[in-house]
Design a protein around this nucleic acid. Structure first.
Length: 420
RNA sequence: GUGGGUGUAGCUCAGCUGGUUAGAGUACCAGAUUGUGGCUCUGGGGGUCGUGGGUUCAAGUCCCAUCAUCCACCCCA
């Protein structure tokens, strides 16, 4: 038996409809907020992610699916969406169109991680980006859009954390302050954080190890070192959120794992789905466009994980609409009836009615049984007795009543009964 | 990459301290006076007990390895 690769999933039958439900609501939302869809390749040159995501991040250091193609080029299956969208923005010269550029995307992402609850090697993200504006209102608009997406899905009890991680200038200052703060406690930090002191002291702030948490309780946070510009931006983001009554939680310790974030960072968690509780997150990335070769251009965006949203919806017992049942099943008792059923199906299907028949030569009884299981509204029975009189029996499976209709007019009559 | 739990029919699981042809429920298929679903009853197909070694007269059951899966660390969606 060949099985699916580790950390991947087949989405089958009824599950597909759940996915489509989520995708559909997101599409509608994007239209209302005036975001336009982009579809970028699933693989890119490795360099894009090294430069975009940051080569000291876990994603680039140990989680990428990277290989050499037959031409010897280093290719990587995308681990996230933003770098690709920004690359497409530059590649297609979208900077010379209407500004700002508001885009959304949907698709599979790949990270070589150990799977666990809510974490997969191939997972799916929906995301939105605004490129070309530094207005704090765009940050707030994206957060508002994200929150209204969850609300439309029926999710509740979510926690929105926001923070400002500053710009390279404030970050340099914070880095020094943190190093000064933690160095005296060096020996009591976990071994991971001991290494972080030099490379990325910000990460110590959200270390989950108790000792590090205790030591870091009074450490300076990103919010203590914001420059005037960043401080001002953060205040305005909060003002905009207040203006439209979006509750948030300020978390100066939230440090996101992608290097490109500047100023605003945010994350939405559904605590009950397990350790991997983030169901959406994002932030501003004013340096990203430049770092992958464009002119200095501000940007902000978010991504959300479809698998985790489904987990949260299951956890909160939110009913997801089911796939519409079949309209009509055509049962028959002999060759002639079966053959008529085949052509009658073509007629009704082309009038917008869904229909099916037996293809296994089953008895009428088992065809009825099968029809019952499809949940169809009507069964048309084409039997020898009826056909010899030019009629067909039509049974309404919802109330069990059965009538006879003339074969010539049957498709029109079915439409009437179904009210379509 | 590290740690722990679990691997028996399509699915959910039994299988006591190792002992004859491995079970149940559910799903699927068929039948219950030869043309009618849902309920009930009867029957049927379907498992090299994850895989490979080992211990033993004998292994689904014990030991080792390996793979997969789940959960957690880490990180993130």
């Amino acid at each position: 038996m060949i099985t699916k690769p580790r950390g991947t999933a087949d989405i089958i039958l009824g599950d597909v409809f759940k996915w489509r439900h989520i995708e559909g609501i997101f599409r509608q939302l994007c239209q209302e907020y005036n975001y336009h869809e982009v579809r970028t390749p699933i693989f890119e040159y490795t360099e894009l992610f090294e430069r975009g995501v940051g080569d000291t991040t876990d994603i680039v250091e140990k989680e990428m699916y990277t290989f050499l193609d037959r031409g010897g080029r280093s290719i990587t299956l995308r681990p996230e969406g933003t770098a690709s969208v920004v690359r497409a923005y530059l590649d297609n010269k979208l900077s010379s169109g209407l500004q700002p550029v508001k885009l959304w995307y949907y698709g599979p992402m790949f990270r070589y991680d150990r799977p666990q609850a809510g974490r997969f090697r191939q997972f799916h993200q929906l995301g939105a980006e605004v490129i070309g504006s530094e207005d704090p209102a765009t940050d707030a608009e994206l957060i508002a859009m994200l929150m209204s997406f969850y609300a439309r899905l029926g999710l509740s009890n979510l926690r929105l954390d926001i923070n400002s991680v500053g710009c390279p200038i404030c970050r340099a200052e914070l880095k020094i302050k943190l190093q000064d703060f933690f160095r005296p406690h060096m020996d009591r930090l976990c071994h991971h954080c001991q290494g972080r002191i030099d490379r990325n002291p910000l990460r110590i702030l959200d270390c989950k190890v108790e000792a590090c948490k205790t030591i870091g309780k009074d450490a300076p946070t990103t919010l203590d070192c914001l420059c005037r510009d960043c401080e001002d931006h953060f205040i305005k983001v909060k003002d905009h959120l207040n203006q439209i009554n979006i509750p948030y939680n300020i978390n100066g310790r939230m440090v996101r794992g992608l290097d490109y974030y500047t100023k605003t960072a945010f994350e939405i968690a559904a605590p009950e789905i397990g350790a991997q509780s983030a169901i959406g997150g994002g932030g501003r990335y004013d340096g990203l466009v430049e770092s992958i070769g464009g002119n200095s251009t501000p940007g902000v965006g978010y991504a959300l994980g479809v698998e985790r949203i489904l987990l949260a919806m299951e956890n909160q017992k939110i009913a997801i609409p089911e796939e519409p049942a079949l309209d009509v099943f055509i049962a028959s008792a002999d060759e002639q009836g079966s053959s008529m059923a085949f052509s009658l199906l073509e007629t009704i299907r082309n009038k917008g009615i869904s229909g099916d028949k037996d293809y296994l030569g089953r008895s009428l009884k088992s065809q009825m049984k099968h029809a019952g299981k499809t949940g169809c509204s009507l069964v048309v029975i084409l039997g020898g007795q009826e056909l010899s009189r030019g009629v067909a029996a039509v049974k309404d499976m919802r109330d069990g009543r059965q009538i006879e209709l003339s074969v010539d007019k049957i498709s029109e009559e079915i439409i009437k009964i179904l009210g379509k």
